[in-house]
Computed example of a mutant assay.
Amino acid sequence: MIQGVNNSLPTDQQKNTAIFICQLLSNLYQPINLFRRGLTLLNLVKFRLNGGFSQ
């Protein structure tokens, strides 16, 4: 056993904090992903409106 390391299970507060952080990071990622998709769609629409490859 490593000296100074506690091998016990996490407390309820630590467990709830970890769950909260994981959910927060997941929720923050989703709008970024949608924003990137929105830009891709916007670029495709602009490309199509400008005549596509015909120019």
Rank of each mutant, 00 (worst) to 15 (best):
M1H: 06
M1S: 12
M1L: 07
M1N: 07
M1Y: 08
Q3L: 07
Q3T: 03
Q3W: 02
Q3R: 10
G4T: 03
G4S: 00
G4D: 08
V5N: 02
V5L: 05
V5P: 01
V5A: 04
V5E: 06
N6D: 15
S8Q: 14
L9H: 13
P10I: 09
P10F: 07
T11E: 03
T11Y: 01
T11C: 01
T11M: 03
D12V: 11
D12S: 10
D12G: 12
D12H: 07
D12R: 07
Q13D: 12
Q14I: 00
Q14H: 01
Q14D: 04
K15P: 00
K15T: 15
K15Y: 06
N16Q: 14
N16A: 12
N16R: 09
N16G: 02
T17V: 06
T17S: 06
A18S: 05
A18Q: 08
I19W: 07
I19Q: 11
F20E: 11
I21V: 13
I21M: 05
C22H: 14
C22T: 10
C22G: 08
Q23V: 11
Q23D: 11
L24Y: 15
L25F: 09
N27L: 15
L28H: 13
Y29F: 10
Y29E: 07
Y29M: 09
Q30G: 00
Q30L: 11
P31K: 00
I32G: 00
N33M: 06
L34Y: 13
F35C: 01
F35Q: 00
F35I: 05
R36E: 12
R36A: 13
R37G: 04
R37K: 09
G38W: 01
G38C: 05
G38A: 05
G38V: 03
G38D: 04
L39M: 05
L39I: 09
T40G: 05
L41K: 01
L41F: 04
L42T: 05
L42I: 07
L44T: 03
L44P: 00
L44C: 11
V45S: 07
V45H: 02
V45Q: 00
V45A: 09
K46Q: 12
K46H: 06
K46M: 09
F47L: 15
F47E: 15
F47S: 14
F47N: 15
R48M: 04
L49F: 03
L49S: 02
L49I: 12
N50C: 08
G51K: 00
G52V: 13
G52F: 03
F53W: 13
F53T: 15
F53A: 15
F53C: 13
F53V: 15
S54C: 07
Q55Y: 04
Q55I: 01
Q55T: 06
